[in-house]
């Protein structure tokens, strides 16, 4: 219940209507969107029960490892109702053609593979919010100071998922496990995304805001 309440509102990309469509415009829009979403996601993390009790250093480490997984999982959940399209924002939906134009076809296809998995399972909002918190708590940072505290956070979130499934999906005792088993693909896809945006950053043709840059650099 706390995670459902903490879930952020939808976000708008607001691409500049005066700029003609191009790969640079699309990437600039996405990087700006990501920067604003990251601010929202950091406030969200503070509402995960147990997260604020971690040391500031451990909170930072988990976010530095898991931020892209959180961004992608949100895009994936928003895209569940559509076919072969990614809802990066309520006003920014990318189809195959737009993905090609932005040079994001491979990355977006990888994200669509996640969408397909969750569609098949019928992922519910309750499951999505817990899974997102688990992705953060389980982001495998190498810099954790108090790994027992992080383990306790993982256990609480894992317990919440198991309790939910036991109540809502008693017909499928393996549903919680199935959801957890989607996380490797999320990790893999996020790593691809980070790699892609790191090379865009090195090109230097797309303006990026400071928080997005700071977190990309944490991954470099």
């Amino acid at each position: 219940s706390l995670l459902l309440v903490a879930e952020p509102e939808g976000i708008f990309a607001m691409p500049d209507p005066t700029v003609p469509e191009s790969d640079i415009k699309a990437l600039t829009t996405l990087c700006d969107l990501a920067d604003r979403e990251l601010v929202v996601n950091i406030s969200w993390a503070k509402h995960i029960p147990g997260f604020p009790s971690l040391s500031l250093a451990d909170q930072m480490s988990l976010l530095q490892s898991g931020w892209m997984e959180i961004l992608i999982l949100r895009v994936v959940f928003r895209s569940l109702a559509l076919e072969d399209k990614l809802v990066y924002a309520e006003d920014y939906i990318m189809d195959e053609e737009q993905s090609k134009l932005a040079g994001l076809l491979d990355l977006n296809n990888a994200i669509l593979q996640l969408v397909k998995k969750y569609k098949t399972m019928g992922l519910e909002k309750e499951e999505f919010v817990v899974l997102k918190a688990i992705a953060l708590a389980n982001s495998d940072s190498m810099q954790i100071e108090d790994s027992e505290a992080v383990q306790r956070l993982q256990d609480v979130l894992h317990g919440a998922l198991q309790d939910y499934e036991a109540t809502r999906h008693p017909e499928d005792p393996r549903r919680a496990g199935k959801l957890i088993m989607t996380l490797p693909l999320l990790r893999q896809t996020a790593a691809r995304a980070v790699q892609h945006f790191c090379s865009i950053k090195q090109d230097g043709r797309v303006p990026m805001h400071k928080l997005f840059l700071e977190l990309l650099e944490a991954k470099a």
């Binding site: 406030s43 503070k46 250093a57 930072m60 530095q64 928080l211 700071e214 650099e217």
Partner: peptide, 15 residues
Amino acid sequence: KEKHKILHQLLQNST
């Protein structure tokens, strides 16, 4: 941690 100033600040803000 000096490198991660913005993340640090955002986590310290109360909201």
